[in-house]
């Protein structure tokens, strides 16, 4: 399983952090970046796969205020909710579609 660890930080302290995700790539990187960078209190969020031979993804979060970890946690929680809702919606729609069209499941 992937491990998230903190890389060295600078004077901004808790406000700006780079998180390293092991064994992750563009799939999670772009998803988290897209969600987190839309938050109002986030100044910058971006990700990079620093070397193609290394299975690592770096996610950088810079905040106007608050802690970078909290934005990451919020991003992950939002994503979990998105997944739950998508699953519910998809399964509901599929059962109604099957019923309407007389498809056996």
């Amino acid at each position: 399983m992937p491990i998230s660890q903190l890389a060295s930080s600078e004077s901004a302290g808790e406000r700006s952090k780079t998180f390293v995700f092991e064994d992750e790539g563009h799939t999670l990187g772009n998803t988290l970046r897209s969600i987190i960078s839309s938050y109002k209190d986030v100044q910058f969020c971006g990700y990079t796969i620093s070397h193609p031979a290394e299975k690592k993804m770096n996610l950088r979060i810079q905040m106007y205020e608050g802690r970078a970890v909290d934005a990451l946690r919020r991003g992950l929680e939002d994503l979990v909710n998105v997944c739950d809702h998508t699953l519910d919606l998809f399964e509901n729609e599929l059962t109604t579609f099957k019923k309407e069209n007389n498809i056996e499941s």
């Binding site: 992750e24 999670l28 992950l76 929680e77 994503l79 979990v80 997944c83 739950d84 699953l87």
Partner: peptide, 8 residues
């Protein structure tokens, strides 16, 4: 995706 996020 959900399990990935949960474990993180």
């Amino acid at each position: 995706l959900k399990n990935k996020c949960l474990s993180l």
